[in-house]
């Protein structure tokens, strides 16, 4: 049991983070809080890639002529970090679009609390 926690604590924390995000999205009634949950969920996935790209003591991302290929432990794969730069950009853009939508909803209905919002939509019909 201790072995599992010591070796994999990062992943266990990420699972918790993922579930917090999912909980926020599904249970919270405020649209802003839903978006916060969504952001936490995206971050947990991004951190999973980052964690997979980490290696203790390794710092060199591309072949260094001075070091040569003889020390594989000094090298680490830079690709997950690069991929996640893209994913972070996507997450930021998604946040931007969702904020724009929330502003529009607030202008139209004067609330961002989901139950109240649904009520006002029903009244309109």
């Amino acid at each position: 049991m201790m072995e599992l926690i010591r070796g994999h604590y990062v992943y266990l924390l990420l699972v918790v983070l993922f579930l917090i995000g999912l909980y926020g999205m599904m249970v919270k009634r405020n649209l802003m809080k839903k978006i916060i949950g969504m952001s936490i969920l995206q971050s947990s996935v991004i951190l999973l890639y980052i964690a997979s790209g980490f290696k203790d003591g390794a710092t060199v991302p591309v072949l260094d002529p001075a070091l040569g290929p003889d020390y594989p432990n000094a090298y680490l794969n830079p690709l997950p970090h690069c991929l996640m730069l893209t994913a972070i950009v996507v997450a930021v853009v998604t946040l931007g679009v969702s904020f724009a939508l929330i502003i529009d909803i607030y202008r139209n209905y004067g609330t961002i609390e989901e139950p109240l919002l649904l009520e006002r939509m029903k009244d309109e019909e």
Binding site: M25, L31, L41, V45, L48, S98, L101, N108, Y109, M121
Partner: peptide, 21 residues
């Protein structure tokens, strides 16, 4: 439409996050 789009956005983002995971 903006509220429909908001729902679409949250579901779509969860879908994309699952794919990425």
């Amino acid at each position: 439409a903006s509220f429909s789009a908001f729902r679409y956005l949250t579901m779509g983002t969860v879908g994309a996050s699952f794919y990425l995971l």
